[in-house]
Design a protein around this nucleic acid. Structure first.
Lengths: 149, 149
DNA sequence: ATTTCTCTTGCATAAATATTCATTGTCTTG
DNA sequence: CAAGACAATGAATATTTATGCAAGAGAAAT
């Protein structure tokens, strides 16, 4: 009655190597390789594989989950940061030469709602708070975040 | 007859901030925010935005496709911008990695008097308004500018 | 001002996908 | 081995998504 594991594997191979527009088409490609199943089964298979259906300029196609990996390169932020300061509208971090973007990326990756955005130069990071009224607590938070890590 | 640019942007915001299972549901969420459209229109919108429909353990949901560097020759700002936000003193645009300067250049080129200046990092643009009192309309203006282009 | 184009949208419907229900093998257990 | 519990699957169908077509709204051209 069944070769499900192999079939799933072949499905992954197929959709990775060529654009497949729909499940009927996929059924045809599988048949060529000796797997004869109905659309219903493919619907279940694709769900199980977590496959995505995406729109491209050339039409719809399947794709192995294009989920962006949240790789967290734990930086040596603590050593890189030389000072943290603020004025009325933003927090400013000074870093060792060339390390600003790394520090900014790290802050961004935290996705803290208190931070709207950061911009990094060579050795300076500007941080815009969700509200200028939260500058002081934000600076404190940043110090904690950087020092905890 | 139309606020398409704004609507597209709001769609991006919605599907980024919460799981949306189908287009009817999306229609409901949009209605709450003042956009009343049919499923047919949303189908077209999602295709235009290159949105993906992915299977998660919790069911189906939409997701913005991570643009692969190679295929995006044309710097389509619409796809590069991931969010637009503001606090009391500036507007902040988040973009895909490495796209901030392109977006900022584009804004600069418009020479809009509402914008005093922009600063771009890797994936973030800070925009200083002619007056902090015009922050809200400026944010709206920017959304239109970017999405119309 | 009239015509012509282009863009956007809804409606109706086609196409594609997901699901319910029933069937059939495969194990497991007593 | 019989009985029950599962897993996999197809057929039929429900649900969801995409699209052909026509209408309306502007913009651009004549």
């Amino acid at each position: 009655m069944m070769n499900k594991p192999q079939r799933l594997f072949v499905i992954k191979e197929i959709i990775q190597s060529q654009p497949v527009a729909n499940q009927e088409e996929l059924a045809g490609l599988l048949k060529k390789r000796g797997f004869e199943v109905t659309q219903a089964t493919l619907s279940r298979d694709l769900a199980e594989l977590g496959v995505a259906r995406i729109h491209t300029p050339d039409g719809v196609r399947y794709s192995l989950t294009p989920v962006s990996e949240e790789q967290k390169v734990t930086p040596l932020v603590l050593r890189e940061v030389t000072s943290i300061d603020h004025n009325e509208v933003m927090v400013v971090i000074k870093t060792l030469p060339g390390r600003a973007s790394g520090v900014a990326s790290y802050l961004d990756s935290l996705k803290n709602p208190q931070i709207i955005g950061t911009v990094a130069g060579d050795d300076t990071v500007f941080i815009t708070p969700s509200s200028v009224k939260k500058i002081v607590p934000l600076e404190k938070l940043i110090k904690e975040l950087l020092l905890t890590q």
